[in-house]
Design a protein around this nucleic acid. Sequence first.
DNA 1: TGCAATTCCTACCTATTAAGTAGTATAATA
DNA 2: TATTATACTACTTAATAGGTAGGAATTGCA
Lengths: 131, 131
Amino acid sequence: MKISTKGRYALRVMVDLAINDNGNFISLKDIATRQEISNKYLEQIIALLTKAGFLETARGNNGGYKLAKAPNEYIIGDILRATEGDLTPIFCLTGENICSKQKNCKTYSFWKGLDDTINNYINSKTLQDLV
Amino acid sequence: MKISTKGRYALRVMVDLAINDNGNFISLKDIATRQEISNKYLEQIIALLTKAGFLETARGNNGGYKLAKAPNEYIIGDILRATEGDLTPIFCLTGENICSKQKNCKTYSFWKGLDDTINNYINSKTLQDLV
DNA sequence: TGCAATTCCTACCTATTAAGTAGTATAATA
DNA sequence: TATTATACTACTTAATAGGTAGGAATTGCA
C-alpha cells in the first residue's frame, strides 16, 4: 500500500512550481534539476498534470510550465488522483469489478470507512498548505 | 495504493474464524472453501497469522485453527501489518531509507499526516466490529 | 532563415512484486 | 499404519513500477 513515484514526484513538482513562480514559464529541465528527477521520466509525470489542466504550458524557446491557478485552489487529492490514478485501497470500492459477495461481505464497510478516511484527508489539503 | 490480497484475505479469514468459532479447530480446507481462496495460497497467509500469534493451531487429524483471543482483542491494524507488512504510504516514513532531503521537504508533513490518519482508523477498529 | 531550446508523443525496456502452484516433511489420531 | 491435517521451502507467471530512448513539432532569437 504505497504511493508510487508518480504521485510523489507530481506533488513535489507542483510545490516547486508554486515556490519558484515568478510569472514566467519554468522549463522542465530546471524543475528536474532542482528535484533530482530524470528529465525523461518527469516529462511523463508533467504530461499528466498538463492533461489534468493544472498547468499552463509554452512550447519552444523559453517555454516551460507554470501553475494555472493559485496554490490554494489545488486540492491535493486531485493532484494525486490525476497522477496515481485511483486511490481506493480496495478494488471493490472503485465501482468496476463489483464483487459478487459484496452484499454479505463483512469487511466491506471497514474498507469503505478506510477509503472515506483517506479521501477526507487528502481532499482537505491544498497546495497552499505545503508551501 | 492498494491493499494486497494477503491483507484482504487475512481479514476475511479472521472474520470467518470468529463467526464459525464453536470451540473446535477449523481446518484450513473448510476456510478455503467458504472463502473461495486456493488452499495452497491460504496456507501462506494463515502461516503469517500463526506466526503473529493470532491463532491456536493443531496438527494432524481433526487439526486446524482457531482464534487465540476474543474478537474484540484483535486490532485490525495489527492483522493488516502482520500480513501486508508495512502500511505506510511513503517509504521515507518507515524509518529506514531516510531521505537526504527530509529536513527541508515540503511534502513530508503532508505524508506524515496521511500516515497518521490511516493508522488512527485501522487501529480504532477490532475484529469484533466486523462480525 | 536557420539554429537552439523547448514541449509533445509513442514505443520500448528491465527489475521487482503480487499472486498463486507444487512438493514434501512432520504430526496426530483412529 | 492409513488418513487427515499442518508446516516449510522452492518455484512460476503475469502485471506493474520505474524508468529510457528517439524523434516530431513549436517557438524565439541571432
